[in-house]
């Protein structure tokens, strides 16, 4: 990646800001840092920043307090659902997985993951629904339903503070490459790729909004705009609609590949679920 002078100036400004600003290190409990160096030299970014950095102090404060953070309303619903038996087998999540704090301590940081039986990767939402249909004999939850969001947020929250660590080699490689291509392909009437904003102009203003790196480590995320928790695929759809493109469907192979690639772009950033964004 060639570094423009603007980018170097921008990065030093960010670095300087981190040192002088009081709230930058007042992180949510269990989160050590929200800014890390890219893991590998061939990473398109030098420094990785959680979307938290690009928000106003009020939005940041909302995430910092586990009581005031409305995303925890969903996490709490997930606590109940974890213990609730459903389907023909009379099982709950806890029947197989026991205490989520132990069994799910790493899972939230490592999705999407290769599924040998299906011959493709699955993300957290898909894995939860696979458990429901195959082990519990229960109906899969609808994408973006309160139940699926709650369970996804609850499970990912168990991995809060753990660095994102997705596998991108072996059978995952073609999916990773597909995701990378999607990320860099211009779409829609505005003719913008993900990279047009989140790679090339993060930290700068798009109208009154501050562009982030488009990191995924806080999903499902409570968005002020949505006034509720929402999935990463919902966010992808929103971005695509806003550049006046025809969005892919939630749970589609395209979004799955994109999720894998975007998660890799945040490799090393701690899981923040449930994050709060604008």
């Amino acid at each position: 990646m060639t570094m423009t002078r603007t980018r170097i100036a921008l990065l030093s400004a960010v670095a300087a800001g981190l040192v002088v600003s009081g709230y930058a290190f007042a992180l949510p409990e269990g989160v050590d840092t929200i800014q890390v160096k890219a893991a590998s030299k061939d990473h398109p970014l030098d420094e990785l920043y959680s979307g938290w950095h690009f928000r106003t102090p009020e939005t940041q404060a909302l995430q910092e307090d586990d009581f005031e953070n409305p995303g925890f309303l969903w996490v709490e619903q997930g606590v109940d659902l974890w213990e609730t038996a459903d389907g023909s087998e009379g099982k709950s999540c806890a029947s197989c997985h026991g205490d989520a704090a132990e069994s799910m301590a790493e899972a939230g940081a490592a999705m999407p993951k290769w599924n040998e039986a299906l011959g493709k990767p699955v993300n957290m939402e898909q894995q939860i629904n696979l458990c429901r249909s195959e082990r519990m004999g229960a109906k899969p939850w609808k994408w973006e339903s309160s139940e699926l969001l709650s369970m996804t947020a609850f499970v990912r929250n168990q991995s809060r503070g753990k660095p994102v660590d997705v596998q991108v080699d072996g059978p995952m490689k073609p999916w990773f490459e597909k995701g990378e291509t999607l990320y860099n392909t211009r779409v829609g009437q505005l003719d913008l790729a993900c990279s047009s904003c989140h790679q090339n102009y993060y930290g700068q203003s798009i109208r009154a909004d501050r562009l982030s790196q488009g990191q995924s480590n806080g999903f499902p995320t409570y968005r002020l705009k949505w006034q509720k928790l929402g999935s990463l695929h919902r966010r992808f759809k929103g971005c695509m609609s806003q550049v006046r493109a025809e969005p892919y469907k939630v749970g589609s192979d395209e979004f799955l590949a994109l999720e894998l690639y975007v998660n890799w772009r945040g490799q090393g950033l701690p899981v923040e679920t449930p994050a709060v964004r604008q």
Binding site: T6, L10, A13, V14, A16, G17, L18, V20, S21, G22, Y23, A24, H53, F54, R55, T56, P57, G203, Q204, S205, R210
Partner: peptide, 10 residues
């Protein structure tokens, strides 16, 4: 993001 010292750039 006042505290990060980032002004909107053209």
């Amino acid at each position: 993001m006042k505290a990060l010292g980032l002004k909107g750039k053209t």
